[in-house]
Amino acid sequence: MAEGVKPRVKVPKSAAAGEAIVIKTLISHKMESGQRKDDEGNVIPRSIINRFTCDFNGENIIDITLEPAISTNPYLEFEATVPEEGEFKFTWYDDDGSVYEDSKKISIE
């Protein structure tokens, strides 16, 4: 697991049934592009988050492929429909095989 990786997500605590809500996510990660060289001129190997998914009660909202051109501490913002009470599941996939997860519950107003 890459060092100091910490996911953050922002989801409203409640919504009306069928409402569209904005979700923001950020994960602390270097996103080493594989394009940089160290002080001795050796290429620093690529090490990035290469995929992110967000699901709600098992149904997909978005599935994103990330490339080395995504900035350090990847930020992603998108909109989800909330059909019922339930739980969002957020998953980040690291090049090194690590998987980082977070989840957030939402209630219906």
């Binding site: 592009s33 709600f56 599935d63 994103i64 990330l66 051109a69 990847p74 998108f78 909109e79 429909t81």
Partner: peptide, 26 residues
Amino acid sequence: NPEPAVATFKFGPLAASRSASTRIRL
């Protein structure tokens, strides 16, 4: 960019809009 690919967004059944934001390197 030396590698032009940046990201691909696939929208699932619960996507409320076909929109997304991120921050990229140029």
